[in-house]
């Protein structure tokens, strides 16, 4: 078996403001093979985006990462500036949520793609690089690509722009693509197209994809594995089927119950179901108490008692794994009761 494309071990990310340093992400560990998609799910502020950025070492000033991140055999946290530049855009590329702000308003689309090409192979002429851009735009389904390379970001529709951003990210055939909410800013129909395009290109190039999303619908249609983050920590990790069909963490179960489903009536044998919101507001690692960060919002914390408030639950393996892969959750309860009792 070949080495995984992405290996993250005990990744913690901290911010320093003035005198104080605090963690925003703690002890994340995942592995991801080529051709597979790992979805990172969580509410705003749960640390999804910063984790994606840490993998490319694109952290803002004042932020630091500890642990180990290996991308395509390169230790990203140990790499120096030159090595990082070589990895970024070639081994690992990123698709941003907001394609408008991710593109320079002063450059046309062709210049963006040509830049991506030439940064990694200066021997390619500007012309040849732009020609690669045309090819790439055609590959991502942009009509009249020869004309489109000369257009500027503001002259594209949102969906076309996201396609262009994907073309730009994939032009150097990265082993790993980090897609940070790639469809959030788009219409639902365009969302489906973009997801389908990403999956198709992933199969074609055999690349691994880290899909950051807060949308369970997107995750369900694209992911192989799922990592659920809560307040910067892993709440649950496992294959899509395990996590969706047998959630082992009350938070995951709560998110599932809060997701609207078109087939809800069938699911419950024809009964009407209401969407159940998770009570309370998300917290952060910084503000969480000594125990489980989810405890204040957890309907099951009462069943466990004191322990939830004073002791951080460790990740533990679950036996519910139906697909053979690892399935783990950070909850003091070994097994969740049936879905009806979970939400408070």
């Amino acid at each position: 078996m070949p080495d995984p494309v992405l290996q993250v071990e005990d990744l913690s990310i901290s911010f320093t403001t003035g005198e104080t340093t605090f963690d925003v992400v703690r002890d994340l560990s995942v592995t991801l093979d080529g051709g597979r998609t790992l979805a990172v799910v969580g509410e705003s502020g749960s640390g999804k985006t910063i984790t994606g950025r840490a993998i490319m070492r694109l952290l803002p000033r004042g932020a630091g990462a500890r642990g180990r991140i290996v991308v395509a055999g390169r230790d990203m946290l140990a790499a120096d500036e030159r090595e990082l530049r070589r990895a970024r855009g070639a081994d690992v590329a990123m698709v941003f949520q907001d394609s408008m702000s991710a593109l320079s308003p002063y450059l046309d689309i062709g210049a963006h793609i040509a830049q991506a090409v030439r940064l990694h192979d200066p021997s390619v002429s500007r012309r040849a690089a732009r020609a690669r851009g045309v090819e790439m735009l055609e590959r991502v389904g942009i009509p009249e690509p020869a004309d489109a390379v000369r257009r500027f970001p503001h002259e594209f529709s949102g969906g076309m722009r996201q396609r262009a951003v994907i073309a730009m990210a994939l032009v150097n055939r990265p082993a790993l693509l980090i897609a940070d909410e790639p469809t959030t800013a788009l219409d639902v129909t365009v969302q489906a197209q973009i997801l389908a395009l990403l999956r198709e290109l992933q199969q074609e190039y055999g690349m691994a994809m880290l899909l950051i999303s807060h949308d369970f619908g997107v995750v369900a249609s694209a992911a192989d594995d799922v990592l659920v983050l809560y307040a910067g920590r892993e709440a649950e990790y496992g294959s899509l089927r395990d996590v969706f069909e047998a959630p082992a963490h009350p938070y995951t179960a709560g998110l599932r119950a809060a997701t609207p489903r078109l087939d809800a009536r069938l699911d419950t044998g024809g009964e009407r179901t209401r969407l159940r919101a998770i009570p309370g507001a998300p917290t952060s690692l910084r503000d969480a108490g000594p125990g489980c960060a989810f405890a204040p919002r957890c309907g099951l914390a009462g069943q466990v008692g004191e322990r939830c408030v004073v002791e951080v639950p460790l990740r533990s393996r679950r036996t519910s794994g139906t697909t053979g892969g690892a399935h783990r959750a950070a909850c003091h309860l070994d097994r969740l009761p049936s879905s009806g009792e979970i939400a408070r």
Binding site: M56, L58, E81, R85, R86, A87, R88, G89, A90, A93, M94, F96, D98, S101, A102, L103, S104, P105, Y106, Q115, A116, L119, H120, M168
Partner: peptide, 21 residues
């Protein structure tokens, strides 16, 4: 703090190239 400069770094540009932008 512009995202398109982060994106440029993500493409492999050096700080100097980014600053020039």
């Amino acid at each position: 703090s512009a995202e398109h400069l982060v994106a440029m770094t993500a493409r492999g540009a050096s700080p100097r190239q980014v600053n020039r932008h």
